[in-house]
Amino acid sequence: MSFGRFALKRSLQGIGVVWGVVTVVFALRFVTPGSAINAVAPLDASQETRQAIAAELGLDQPLYVQYGQYIFDLLRGDMGQSYIKGQEVTALVFSRLPATVELAVAASVVAIVLAIPLGVISATRRNEPVDYGATLLSLGGISTPNFWLGIMLILIFAVEFNIFNTSGRGVDVGDVALSVVNAEPFVGTLLTWLAYITLPAIALGTYFMALITRLTRSGMLDELSKGYVQAARAKGLPRTLIRYKHALRNTLIPVITVLGLQLGTLIGGAVITEAVFSWPGLGTLVIESINQRDWPALQGSLIVIGTSFVLVNILVDVVYAYLDPEVVND
């Protein structure tokens, strides 16, 4: 199979999965004991009012008609109207998405920047104090609930030392970039941005930092014992070059795949981190929608979350296949 065909096949599979995601989300509405009408109708609504509402929401149609209509609307980018916020769900979800992406990317950066050197050092100095330290740190990291870590960070850095903000978003990363263009005080805007994002990014990123450290360490140990490393050593290549150019590169390929699969954990973690730090992202929208029984908003958020997961994993697989052509033939 050629690379192009692989990419095409993987994308088609992805479309199938997205269709499955949409179907599951559509079905969720029908496992509810409190039907959609109850969420909208006043408690003392008469039978006529309830029927009128059902007709307006299309709930009086046969199931397959509702399903067809739902898919058709989705294809046009229409996810319905929020029951509570009186807003287009599409607009609502996409107004919240950037904050979650920003938080998730910041957390990943925190995780990767710390974890990869830590994993490499841990593997190259096996059974030395630095390795034990890194092992304990990563063990703690994968075992700590991120919402609790967030509260502890607030306790230490916001309540005791009053360094960071603990609630909301302040400015977004776009504002920081724009401050350069608009000749606003760049450093000031940057510091404001950091004051808001640092603690949630650490709270969310720690689990992944720990996970990547563990994966990098075991992957590096594996690679360093292989023949090509010994050959490179025998040739007299510098150690740093062998470690970082040869061994690390081969280690990172499987690490990236695992991270793609763990993207769900990252988004799930973002939901709860956002709740701790009142971060105005998709996660807070999910919780709000459930508490207010705002099903269209919940469905819209779930579809966007599920679809992002599928898209990122297609991207990961395609990049993987590009880096390691053997995968294509599997």
Binding site: V21, L28, L266, V271, I287, G306
Partner: peptide, 15 residues
Amino acid sequence: DVSLAFPSLVLAVAL
């Protein structure tokens, strides 16, 4: 594949 596309926590909270 479909099941994995929803984060455990998000799916659990929704259900």
